[in-house]
């Protein structure tokens, strides 16, 4: 590239969709140019509300995201969507099919949809989801939405990526008790029973309202509203948008959003550090080879790890302990 050509960051901040698309690709590929790009646009990050949509396979997440986007557009809000589908652990390939349910939004200049393969992450998102959200945020969307992989149990990366987590369930995919033990209730800020046109939806709403009440009543916690909708026939979306809005308002009061964003940032730092550790220390500084030697010198794998950890700890700068004390919340 010659110096006359605008940089990717400039293109992105100027609203070029192609630049945004390429920025997301850099995030996904862990391209070495990405950290600088993020730095160049970071002043513009932080204005979008981030909604995570999760739930079991086939609950209607994509259909619902499409409807949400449509209603938001009627309110003249712009929408950036990430739709995550699983990569094959065997071939690394992926069939990305969520956007097929959002095709009506394709030519709307106020909507941007990007499919993302999970690429080995097992928490329901891709490794780069938060990075991609950041560049979409800088681009200037009012609302960001990420649809997770269809999750069963205990795949909760979405909590670290979203301000508001919407859990989508539907009748026929188990009862309220199953929803409780799956842990999905614990991550929900808003609960949505989709396919209210099918039998069993009312029962599910009642079950979940009770479960939510038991979990949260009298504890000063946010009590997730339970909303029933039928995304397929576009019913109940206004109520759902209101519920999302009410959670957002609750977050923004009393500085909760700021705290939650700090935690999101911390998650991101930790993730990048772990990757950096694998790359720079495990591979780059020969820890892998040293670990092999330690295995021979130790009785068990735990023993080997223990010895390495002791040496790493001894090498840490002493002022870290002090910073730790000063920043404890």
């Amino acid at each position: 590239m010659n110096s006359q050509q605008p940089s990717l960051a400039q293109g992105l901040l100027a609203g070029q969709r192609g630049a945004l698309a390429r920025a997301i690709t850099w995030a996904e590929n862990a391209d070495r140019r990405f950290p600088q790009l993020l730095e160049d646009v970071y002043a513009a990050v932080g204005r979008s509300h981030r909604l995570g949509v999760t739930g079991p396979p086939g609950a209607g997440k994509s259909t619902l995201v499409n409807q949400l986007a449509r209603h938001l557009r009627e309110l003249e809000r712009t929408v950036g969507i990430l739709a995550v589908d699983p990569s094959s652990p065997f071939t690394g390939g992926a069939l990305l099919g969520d956007r097929i349910r959002m095709e009506e939004r394709t030519l709307d200049p106020g909507v941007f949809i990007r499919s993302m393969a999970s690429r080995g992450s097992r928490g329901g998102l891709a490794r780069a989801t938060v990075d991609a959200f950041d560049v979409m945020d800088a681009f200037g969307f009012d609302q960001l939405i990420v649809e997770t992989v269809g999750v069963g149990q205990a795949e909760y990366d979405v909590v670290g990526a979203a301000d508001t987590v919407l859990v989508v369930l539907c009748p026929g995919a188990g009862d309220g008790v199953q929803a409780m033990k799956s842990g999905l209730l614990e991550v929900a800020d808003v609960l949505c029973i989709n396919k209210a046109d099918l039998p069993g939806a009312d029962r599910m709403v009642a079950d979940l309202e009770e479960a939510v009440h038991i979990r949260t009543a009298g504890k000063g916690l946010w009590m997730p509203p339970v909303v029933s909708v039928s995304a397929g026939t576009d019913q109940g979306l206004d109520g759902l948008l209101e519920a999302i809005q009410s959670h957002r308002a609750w977050l923004e009061a009393e500085g909760r959003l700021q705290l939650s964003r700090q935690e999101q940032r911390l998650d991101q730092v930790q993730r990048v550090l772990r990757e950096g550790f694998d790359h720079a220390i495990w591979e780059g500084r020969g820890l892998e080879g040293y670990a092999r030697a330690m295995i021979k010198a130790s009785r068990t794998p735990h023993g080997a790890a223990e010895r390495i950890l002791e040496q790493l700890k001894a090498a840490l700068p002493s002022e870290w302990a002090q910073v730790q004390e000063e920043t404890q919340p």
């Binding site: 071939t91 690394g92 390939g93 992926a94 069939l95 990305l96 099919g97 956007r99 097929i100 499919s115």
Partner: peptide
């Protein structure tokens, strides 16, 4: 689409 996926590619099919 599915053969390309099986060959390790990320495939978007739009219908």
């Amino acid at each position: 689409a599915s053969v390309l996926r099986d060959n390790g590619m990320e495939v978007i099919y739009t219908g």
